[in-house]
């Protein structure tokens, strides 16, 4: 039988088409979809901060630094507490000495003496990574070293981060920084290593007043979810479209 090159090619193409038909019945899943299909679809970590309960002791900051190997004496920190003092004349003073690692031990605000009689209101606001649903830091990483887990936590791969700082620039909350030892981007992980063992985050455990709570937003019976659904909560800087997942009770318009 004579089998020309033309015959060979035409048969090959037809054959390939027929062979690929059953393959097209399959769907290509992206890794996230695949993971969600297997497990994790019913997990989404969220956080509630009750600013009414916070007294600015700074135990959370201290606990975080020790738990997560963030050098103790440097300025950068994964979580911090801000003090807001609004004076009767409308002026607003804010400070966070050492990120409130040692609490607020002085009545001087940002180095200025404030007469208690002049104060209209004052309160503390703990901050940490918002574990955004739409995280700009993950979006801008040029090498994919930072990523979002299926349960909603943005993490950094220390072995792959090139240290360009684009993620630090893109975070509206100032949650990221360069780790002084590893020289790569660093951020709050919601203590994922503890969460996945059934524990709470270090800051939640350290808070003596229950101002911080972590929980699964996909579980309607979780205390965190109950608060988010039933109380009047607010998030920080929602205008950036990042969809933060740290919800605040008692947030004031002065909070930055």
């Amino acid at each position: 039988m004579k089998f020309s090159r033309r015959d060979f090619l035409s048969t090959a193409i037809k054959g390939a088409c027929i062979a690929s038909l059953p393959i097209s019945a399959f769907r290509i899943l992206n890794p996230k979809e695949a993971e969600a299909a297997v497990k994790g679809a019913n997990m989404r970590w969220g956080f509630v901060v009750n600013t009414e309960k916070c007294v600015g002791c700074g135990f959370c900051v201290k606990a975080c630094k020790l738990e997560n190997e963030v050098p103790y004496d440097v300025a950068v920190t994964r979580t911090w507490v801000e003090r807001y003092v609004v004076l009767k004349d409308g002026r607003r003073l804010i400070d966070t000495p050492h990120g409130a690692r040692d609490g607020f031990t002085s009545s001087e605000v940002d180095g200025r003496d404030v007469n208690p009689k002049d104060i209209a209101k004052a309160f503390f606001v703990p901050k940490l990574c918002n574990q955004c649903e739409n995280p700009p830091c993950v979006q801008v990483c040029p090498v994919g070293a930072t990523y979002q887990t299926s349960d909603g936590i943005a993490l950094v791969d220390r072995s792959w981060c090139i240290g360009c700082g684009y993620c630090i620039m893109s975070c509206p909350y100032g949650a990221r920084f360069f780790h002084p030892v590893y020289k790569v981007a660093e951020k709050c992980t919601f203590c994922i290593h503890r969460l996945r063992q059934g524990m709470k985050t270090a800051c939640v455990d350290a808070c003596p007043f229950g101002a911080r709570m972590v929980g699964n937003l996909k579980d309607p019976n979780d205390p965190v979810t109950k608060i988010v659904l039933s109380e009047r909560v607010a998030v920080l800087k929602d205008s950036y479209g990042t969809k933060p997942q740290v919800y605040y009770l008692g947030l004031d318009e002065n909070v930055r």
Partner: peptide, 26 residues
């Protein structure tokens, strides 16, 4: 200058290996 500024300049080639195209730098 970009190379000079990286905290991990030795990893610069990763931008070619695993470009993450939602990033403007990728």
């Amino acid at each position: 200058p970009l190379l000079f500024h990286l905290q991990q300049p030795q990893r610069n080639f990763e931008v070619m290996l695993t470009p993450h195209f939602t990033s403007a730098i990728a």
